Simulated assay, not measured.
Amino acid sequence: MRLVSDKDQEDASNYAMKGFAVGAAQWAGVGLFASALAYSFFPWYRRTQTVNKFYIVMCFGLGGGAYKSDRYMVNFERRGRAQMLDETTRQRYEIIYGGKKDENLPAPAAEQEAKQ
């Protein structure tokens, strides 16, 4: 189990809500299009009450929002894991090969005299 801070939780929830908004907008558009097609071709749909038509479009939007929110959350977690692995790999390389900090250190006096 990974411990997360309040800021991480807030970032994750904001990103998931962004995904929900995007998915709800996309799938509500699909629902409106499907409703328009059904209205054009099916007489029984024309007789359906407006409230029920709205409910059908709303179901499209809520379902799409839930799906997209989950996708955004999974991508957020994967991106966090990738950053964590990159950081760990960088730290291991610095331990094994030496970091940039070691390159900037002044050479010992004996080596400086040999170079001159």
Rank of each mutant, 00 (worst) to 15 (best):
K7T: 08
V22E: 07
G23L: 12
E94N: 14
Q9T: 04
Y55M: 07
Q116C: 08
V4R: 01
K101V: 12
G80Y: 00
E94P: 07
V74W: 03
A12E: 01
R90V: 11
I56V: 06
V74D: 03
G98C: 11
G63E: 03
L3S: 07
P43M: 04
K101R: 10
L62Q: 11
Q112E: 14
G31E: 05
D102Y: 13
Q9P: 03
V4P: 00
P106T: 02
A38P: 06
R2S: 05
F76Q: 05
F33M: 15
K100P: 07
F60Y: 14
Q112G: 07
E77T: 01
R81I: 00
A107H: 02
P108E: 01
P108S: 12
A16V: 05
A82I: 06
P43T: 08
N52Y: 10
P106Y: 00
F42I: 13
E77D: 01
A28S: 12
S40K: 10
V51H: 15
M1S: 00
R79Y: 00
I96A: 09
K7P: 04
D8T: 09
L32R: 03
F20L: 09
L37I: 10
A109H: 15
G80K: 01
G61V: 04
A34M: 05
S40H: 07
V57C: 09
N14P: 09
I56C: 03
I95N: 13
Y93F: 15
Q112Y: 13
T50E: 06
E103W: 06
P106M: 01
E94V: 13
R46C: 02
V74K: 06
L62V: 15
E103H: 08
G19N: 04
A82H: 08
